[in-house]
Amino acid sequence: AQVLELVFRSAASSTIPTLLLESFMMGVLLAFIPIGSYLLYVKSRSYMPFVSILWMVLVTMLTHWALSLRDLESTLAGRSMGFSTSLIDLAHAANASKAAAHGEHRAHHAHLGDGAVFGSVFVFGQAWRHLLPLVTETVLFGFASSLFAIAAYIVVRRSCSHWRSRFDLIIPAMVSLMYTLSLIHWAIALRCFTVLPKYAMSGAPLSFQTHIKGLDISLLIVFSLNAVMSDSIVLWRMCVVWERTSSVRMIGAVLLIATLGLNIANIVVLHRIMVYTRWFPRNSRDSEIITTYGLTPVGLAAAFLSLATNLFATVLVGTKAWIHRRQVSHQFGPKTRRTLAGRVMELLVESGVVYTAIWLLYCISFFRQITT
């Protein structure tokens, strides 16, 4: 157990920070290399050898990162040391060695023992549960940071040449706010992860639960704000595409108010459950590690309403794109090239379909694990 504690300490202080940095860089490369390759390809075909080198670098880095992650997982699960680090298996092993030392046969009575080492292994275990969501989030945060840098460059370049009005800056401003919120979310998730190994190493009493609950609520508030803003952008785009038709605007407003209300209600309910330990009906099949929408009926309603909002907006934009294409081919003949408005609408539909599919997967994950 003491060796295990040392291995965990070393993982927390050196291996995991390196892996997180590598994960962030993976996200950055996953954004810059495809966009850079596209720009070089459009500029001149003579850049193709350079582009293929970039992709080879990306594949090598991805392989290295995936192997590092697998190696870390195998260390934390104890496979590289030849035993299981699950608390029950450790208790069995400890009891078996005690029984052997005293010449008794008590190995089948597993209990956690009284040593501080078991407490420390338990808290480390809590930290490792937060690790994989954090690694995923760090890769995506690196990806979002690169996209934000590229978007900021586009906005600055355009503001020097042509912005028609201040209204054009609303979307860049909202996107900046959303990026800031996702930065805060990542910072809190990182804090959640770093607090636990510190408690484990200090050997302090298990008072970390209150601390972690506060951080979990903060994560939920930031995420809910981002989800509501993302839905509002989707609905706003739908209204613009439908040239602000009053019925579409009204449905959009109702959906937005309902999403906002359910998100606030979900935060209130989860705060009562976590902080005041009040009883509420709960979804026992929820597989989330960071509790968001999956635990209570109110949260599930908020998540499914967001899914419905995205689906509804995508279908309406798709319908408008189809009507637009029919009108263009009717007026200028079937072989007319796609117009700018048509291309933008197609892009909105395609991205809407991808985002809706991700929300659908997310909603399924509240009831069963997606992979085995």
Binding site: T136, L140, H185, N226, S351, S365
Partner: peptide
């Protein structure tokens, strides 16, 4: 990918901000 799909609770906060950013850049590139 398996890690990402199994841990959408960590990923969704980032994906909500990636979505509008990606659409903005794709329209600008187009």
């Amino acid at each position: 990918l398996v890690t990402a799909v199994d841990h959408l609770d960590g990923a969704m906060a980032q994906l909500t901000s990636i979505y509008p950013l990606a659409v903005f850049i794709l329209i600008a590139l187009d």
